[in-house]
Each structure stands twice: as structure tokens, then as C-alpha cells.
Simulated assay, not measured.
Amino acid sequence: MATVEQAAGRVAIVTGGSGGIGSAVARRLAADGMSVVVHYAASAGRAEEVVKAITEAGGTARALPGDIADPTEAARLFAAAEEAFGGVDVVVNTAGIMVLAPLAEMELEAFDRMHRVNVRGTFVVSQLAARTLRPGGALINVSTSMTRLQQPAYGGYAATKGAVEAMTLILAREMRGRDVTVNAVAPGPTATPLYLEGKSEELIQRTAAAAPLERLGTPDDIAETVAFLAGPGRWVNGQVLYANGGIA
């Protein structure tokens, strides 16, 4: 992890910062000394709770709204971060949605919604990050270990995250000479509301037992991985880092 001295003066944007993983990432980067923009789409109350937790712990943060798939709104988010804090050094793209259904039964509208947020949103934010990040910066996108686990009902969701991985790996090569790293984190099953919703206790326990560490991941587990890539992990670039406790 970065020391507070190393992170002082650095600025991070965390998209989906009101969500389970996003809020943990925002708090973790703030604990390292970064000023954090906590982005949200609709959950203003939860985003303000994250900001309050950060400021009460002595950190600096502000909540900002926006549709990350809308280039104008996303650009406004980056501009507001620059105006408030002077620049952007780290972008963590945790915003995403997940709809589960067998491929033969998935509504095309549901797939389109996932594609808009997970693929188009990641593209728009990555494009802005590529144009904006200062030397020494880092872009961290979020994929999923379901691209490896290949579980039924995850086909549509995993397809959107496969696109995220492809964009991430190619952008890392396109950033040659900029001193900016570009990586993706691929969480395994993680105990967030997004993952737990609609699952039986029996299924949750069975999934947890599948990992050699015999538990689900936590948002803090993922935040630690992100903090490494955002701070000291400068020699890790153009990679998909699987944070899943060995489940895949």
C-alpha cells in the first residue's frame, strides 16, 4: 500500500462509490491520504454516508453524481474533480450492474442495460482517464472472476466484463510513454448487496466453501487489491488481477 506521504496530494475518482466495493475502495484510498471523489448515479444518501465516514476519519472527499455512460455527464465529473482538487491521479471504475439469467432466457433489454453501464460506461470513463490522468497515475477497471468460473446464468454479465478486460489490456499499451498504469481487478464472489441479492443461504454457503479459504470475499479484500494497484504496484501494468481467494 502507499504511505500517507506518498499519497498526499493525489486525487482519486471512484465511480460507483456508493456501492459495496466502491465505498470500500473510496474509504481505503482516503485512508492512504488521497482526496476522493465518490461518484454515484442514484444513491446520493449512500454516497454522502461514504463521504461522512471519510471526513470523520480525517480524510477529504466529496460526492458527485453522473451517468458514466453519458460523455457529457462523465466529463462534468472529471472537470469537477479537477476544479475541486487540482487534477486526477487515480480512477477506479467500480460502477456496474448485474442481471442473471440463462442466455436463452435473458431479455435483450436487460443485456442492453448491462452493456450500457458495464461496457459503454467503462469505455467513456477509461477514455476520459486516458486524456486526464497525471504522470504516475493509475486506471483500475473492475471485471469479474465469472469470466473464468463460467457459471450458468452469468453469460450476459460475464460477456460485458470480457469486453472490459479487452479494453483495459489494450489501453495499457496505448498509454506508452505517459507513466500511467492500466489494470483490471476481477473479484470472485464477494459479499455485497449486488452479489447476495436473490441468492439462497444454501447457495451462498456452497459458493463460500468452494474457495480454498472457505469464505466469500469482502469489499475490503477487493479494496486492498485496488490500493496496491493505485499505489505501490507500479510494475503491474496491462494485467487482470484475480482477487478471488483461489476459487478460480
Rank of each mutant, 00 (worst) to 15 (best):
D67H: 11
I140F: 02
R113K: 15
T94E: 09
A61F: 12
S143Q: 01
V91P: 02
T122Q: 10
A57P: 13
V185M: 08
A130I: 04
A130L: 08
V92F: 08
Y154I: 04
T160A: 00
S143Y: 04
E49W: 00
A110H: 12
L139R: 00
G188H: 03
R116M: 09
E105M: 10
E107N: 14
V185Q: 05
A104S: 15
Q151E: 12
T160P: 00
N93T: 13
E107R: 15
G188S: 08
L171I: 12
A158K: 00
M146Q: 14
E109T: 14
T181Y: 04
D112N: 11
G137N: 08
V90H: 00
V125E: 04
A63R: 08
N141W: 05
T72G: 12
T147P: 02
T122P: 03
A53W: 04
D67Q: 13
A81Q: 05
I68C: 04
A138W: 03
D179F: 09
V119N: 02
D70E: 12
G96V: 06
A163Y: 07
P135F: 12
A63C: 08
T72P: 01
P71I: 13
G87A: 13
A101Y: 02
Y157M: 08
R120D: 09
A69H: 04
E48P: 06
R116H: 09
A101S: 14
Y157K: 03
T72Y: 11
V117D: 01
I170R: 04
N141D: 12
P102F: 11
G45H: 05
L108E: 15
P187W: 00
I97D: 03
E83F: 07
R176K: 14
M114C: 05
Y157Q: 01
